[in-house]
Design a binder for these strands. Structure first.
Lengths: 196, 196, 196, 196
DNA sequence: GATGAATGAGCGTTCATTCAT
DNA sequence: TATGAATGAACGCTCATTCAT
């Protein structure tokens, strides 16, 4: 069908834009001009606005896609995790795979459209959900200190985000942070929350 | 003296610009146009560039001032602190007093001139210095878990920054985060690092 | 083809800008603001920067075009010239056709980007080349005084430029200088360089 | 008298401004900001506008002073000149002493206020006057070709100006042109105008 | 649907000029 | 008279967005 062919083309163009934007934003942050995205994607500048009425809309879609992707990764990986250590390790795996973009997201969140925050919230709540169920079990078992679960979660996320946001302190300008500090992050955190 | 009167006037204008920039940047972030700063400060647009040759220079001066102010506060308050709890409380006091601007700083740090990063580093190293000396003592006394001091510090700062950077989750768009969560932050952190 | 239509339109806009810039710069010199060029050309201010990334680039393109045009004219006309008188006459023809812009070029050369100077040098060397070959022949024939060829050339160019640069002494503010003084310039110069 | 003291001060300030402007404009051309002139002169920016209501007025006064100075030099030197060669040599002496500023004047004349042109005209007419009386004598004596005197003059001035205006071709960016090419200029010109 | 030239509001910065001291 | 901080119009340039093709 002709219609289908068109739709395929449309889908491809849209995908090229999203993928390129993801890559460029990961590398240079969210203030890269749309014209640069278009050029890198190999599509016309106008095409961006055919698919996304405004730049904000592109961002929202991009973030939504990213949230879905992260969500899927987190759900899949979560199944395999029995212990908290496994879960945190898997969480770091997912972050490591998406480190550049995720770091931009938490770094420039305030400059992004409000809808971006729901993406962020969605990702965190997904993590939080799995985190909670595992941690609560461990608290019951007595292996983890009896503290409010959300505080344990915030501490973990705060620690990890601190490393991501200050990569230049830890890993040079563009180096991978998670890979380098995974062990230190995990052991410190586990040590802290465990009864000793 | 005439000279003095002029100097006072000049100083006042400079102060108006710095104070206004501090306020506006606190409220809206560092990408507010210079023309808005000027209008809010009640001076002409050109006046800004009489006092600060470039926007970058204004930012650097502003951040340097801010760093000095924070540094002074931290030094003064640190003297009074014997216990870690006191120290963290005082740290939160200083952050609370400067919450809006400090939050912008840690949030938009990567978009600021490189000199800004040294301001940030200076503030953190000041805190870290006092933190270390107190924590090491507590570790020796056996009241705090024996973990690398820098990791204990990063955990604390990560936790606090997490709350500041995600204020909208915790305290509505512009609400004060530190005041509201001071107790929870402190008790959680102290609980974690103490042997139980 | 669609592509062709677009390219024609683009070319036309570029041409409008170049032509208008050529005219305005001829009339008022090279420090006319880009906004004036745009308004006179009937395009938006931003359009100028779609076609020329910087003002300097516009100038360089304009001068390069002008140099090409002058170069072509000079080459074509030079072929027809056997005698020095013919050659100088043709040189004046070319200058007369481009008098206003050429005068601005020699007048404001030092304020233009360095690339502009190469345009100027290119034009002069083209003239010098033809001049030399003809003059050397005449020197051999004994009809022209035996003086260094480059000095004969500099004298000619100096004389012509003097009239162009001081048009207000000779021809009112915007009058054509070459047309009015062609005979006088030629006869004086030829008289000087010929043995008598 | 107090009034006298004030007048002396006033005169001194004015002189400092004129002298500095002369020096700076010689070095960098006429588009140097007034604030730079003031700083270099060691006076306040406002002082310039106490003595010269507008920048244009400063330029006019400066050029007028320069014209007077050149005029005096030319008159004094002219007295000593019997032969044309002497006269041209003295003309070059005067130009050499004022080469930098004179070159700026003939180079940027069109960007200067209209009154500047009268300065230029005055200087040239002074030279022309002495030139004419000497040349006419030589024509009568039969040592110089019988051509319109003003054309002989324009040829001379054209040649000299050509060298001054294209110094980068002849003498590197800031080198003295007259000193280097005096002999060549003189011998070429004299050779041309003399019967052979 | 895709194109990319055109748009124009807005940016940081400059600088001759003013004026209270 | 001298000062120099303050002014604001103007500049070159950017970039999200529009629209004729």
């Amino acid at each position: 069908m002709e219609i289908s062919a068109r739709q395929v083309q449309k889908f491809n163009t849209r995908k090229k834009i999203i993928d390129t934007a993801y890559r460029i934003f990961s590398e240079k942050g969210f203030s890269v001009p749309t014209s640069v995205i278009a050029k890198e994607a190999g599509v016309s500048h106008g095409s961006i606005f055919v698919h996304f009425p405004t730049l904000n809309n592109l961002l929202v879609c991009l973030l939504s896609d990213f949230g879905d992707k992260m969500g899927r990764s987190l759900h899949i990986l979560a199944k395999k995790c029995d212990s908290l250590e496994d879960l945190l390790n898997e969480h770091l795996n997912v972050l490591e795979e998406n480190e550049a973009f995720y770091t931009r997201l938490i770094s420039e969140k305030n400059r992004l459209p409000d809808e971006a925050k729901s993406t962020f919230a969605f990702i965190q709540s997904t993590v939080a959900f799995h985190f909670s169920s595992v941690v609560e079990r461990e608290i019951e078992k007595g292996t983890v200190k009896k503290l409010p679960v959300h505080m344990l979660f915030n501490t973990w996320l705060g620690l990890v985000h601190y490393y991501l946001l200050n990569r230049e302190f830890f890993a040079g300008f563009n180096g991978p942070v998670i890979r380098k500090y995974r062990g230190e992050l995990l052991s410190t955190y586990l040590n802290l929350i465990r009864k000793s």
